[in-house]
Nucleic acid binder design. Structure first.
Lengths: 239, 239
DNA sequence: CGCGGCTTTGATGTTCATCAAGTAAAGTGG
DNA sequence: CCACTTTACTTGATGAACATCAAAGCCGCG
C-alpha cells in the first residue's frame, strides 16, 4: 500500500558515455559507426539501487530500456489489485521490448531487484534506426520474437505444473539462467516468487520447506543451495 | 489419438494472384509497387476447410502466414500430452507472427476452425523487405509487438479469473471481437473452449448451463445468444 | 526496546479436476 | 435410408489441490 516510488533521476548516477560502451555489441552489432554515434547522442545511462523503480505502468514510453548490469523485474498490478511479475530480466534480455512498439504508455512497471545499470535510448532514435538500417531492423524483430516467445513459453509451461513443479522450475531458473551456480542468493522475497509463478506466499514457503526436509535444497534465509539437482529436475518435469 | 492430418496442398484450392488482392493494404500498405511486386512473386494462397491443418508444430518455417478470410486456432500439445489453444486469429491478426523470427521450426500448430483463405509468403522474401524497406520493417515490429501483447494480456487476465469469469470472458470475446453480434455460432467445441481458457470440458458445459438457467445466455447447440450482457460483463470483471 | 515487515506452520474451506454414467447428435457402412 | 458406431454433450458425486485465515517467531531498524 506504499505510494509507488516514482523514478527520481537525481537519485541515479550517470555513469558513462556510449562510444566506449562494452555492451553495445549485442544489440547494436549491426549498426555501423554513423548510426552508433547517432544512438550515442540520444541515450542516457543510470544506476538504480535494489528496490528502485525504473518505470511505472502507465508512464509515457519515450525510451527503449536496455539493461547493462543487474537484475530487474517486469511487473504489473491486476485489476483486482493483485501484483504479478511478468518476467525477470538479466543483462541483454531487452526488457521492455515487449509492448514498446504498440503502446504509447507502459503496460508494465520495471523495478530493480539488484543494483542495476540501465540505458535509456530515445525511442524515436531507435525507430529512425529501424527505418534507415535494415539489418538493425531485422535484429530487433528477431529479439522481440525471442522475448515474447520466452515469456509465453514460460507461462504455458507453468500453467501445466502443480505447485511443487513450479517451485522446482523457479529454483532451476535462478540456478541455471541467472546465476550459473547451484548456490545463490535469492534476489526476491518469497512473496515475489509467488507473484512470479502464480501461487501464494504461504505455499512457496511450505513447498520450499518440504524440499529442505527432503534434502533437495538447503535454505539459509535468502541463500539457496541445490543439493539434489536431479530430483529437482524430475519434479520440474513431472510436477 | 488420430494421426495428425498433414497439410495436403492438393486439397486446397489456389485462389488469386497478389496484385489484385484487396487485403494487401493492411500489412503491406507501406510497401511501394516494386516491393509489392516482389512479394507477389513469392507467395501462394490456399483455401482450407474447417478442421484442416495449416501447419504443424515442428514443421520447418518457410513462410509468413497471413489470414485473408476465416478463423484459425493457434495451438500446441504440452509435454504431458494435453492440447492447448494459444489464441484464435481472425483476418489481419498476423497469425504466426509470434515466434516466426526466432525459430527455425514452428512452436505451434495452426488449424482452420472456419473455412479459411490463407496466404503463404516466403519468409526470406519478407526478411528481404524488412532489410530494404524501413517503413515496412517498423510496421512489422509494431504488429509483432501488438500480437504478443494481446496474447500475453489475455493470458494474464485469464489467470486471475475464476471459471465463471473465464466463460464470461470468452463469450464476450466471440461476441465482441470475432462476430460483432450478440448472437453467434460458436466455431469451436466445448472441449476446445476448455483448451483455450484453461479449464475442463465438463466445467465449460456446467457453467454455460448455469448462465442459461440464470437467463444470461440462450444456448441452442453451437448457437449462443447473449441476453444479459451487463451481467456477463460484470461476471467477466469480478469473477 | 518495540515496531513493522518478512517468514513460518497449522487448521479450515473453496474451487476445481476427476470419475462415472447416461443422453443426444453426427458420421459410417450396409 | 436405417442400424450401428463414434463423437460430442450433459449431469451428478467425490476427492485432491490449493487459497485463505489465524497466529506466532524472527530479524533488522529507528
Amino acid at each position: 500500500m506504499e505510494a509507488s516510488t516514482k523514478i527520481d533521476i537525481s537519485d541515479c548516477e550517470l555513469v558513462q558515455d556510449c562510444s566506449s560502451c562494452n555492451y553495445k555489441s549485442l544489440l547494436f552489432e549491426t549498426l555501423d559507426d554513423t548510426y552508433l554515434k547517432k544512438i550515442s547522442g540520444c541515450k542516457n545511462q543510470y544506476r538504480f539501487k535494489k528496490g528502485q523503480t525504473i518505470c511505472v505502468e502507465g508512464d509515457k514510453i519515450e525510451n527503449l530500456i536496455y539493461l547493462h548490469k543487474g537484475l530487474v523485474k517486469l511487473h504489473r498490478t491486476s485489476s483486482s489489485g493483485r501484483s504479478q511479475i511478468i518476467s525477470i530480466s538479466k543483462p541483454f534480455d531487452y526488457i521492455g521490448l515487449l509492448s514498446v512498439f504498440s503502446n504509447h504508455n507502459y503496460k508494465y512497471s520495471l523495478t530493480a531487484i539488484e543494483p542495476s545499470s540501465v540505458c535509456f535510448i530515445n525511442l524515436e532514435c531507435i525507430k529512425d534506426s529501424i527505418i534507415n538500417n535494415g539489418k538493425f531492423a531485422l535484429e530487433i524483430v528477431e529479439k522481440m520474437s525471442k522475448v515474447s516467445d520466452d515469456v509465453l513459453g514460460a507461462k504455458f509451461s507453468l500453467s501445466n505444473k502443480h505447485l511443487r513443479g513450479r517451485i522446482a522450475y523457479i529454483l532451476l531458473y535462478f540456478s541455471d539462467k541467472i546465476y550459473n551456480s547451484l548456490e545463490f542468493n535469492l534476489p526476491v522475497s518469497r512473496a515475489e516468487i509467488a507473484e512470479l509463478i502464480d501461487m501464494r506466499t504461504e505455499n512457496v514457503i511450505r513447498i520450499m520447506s518440504e524440499f529442505r526436509k527432503d534434502k533437495i535444497i538447503k535454505i539459509n534465509g535468502h541463500i539457496i543451495e541445490i543439493i539434489d539437482i536431479n530430483r529437482l529436475k524430475s519434479i520440474n518435469i513431472n510436477g
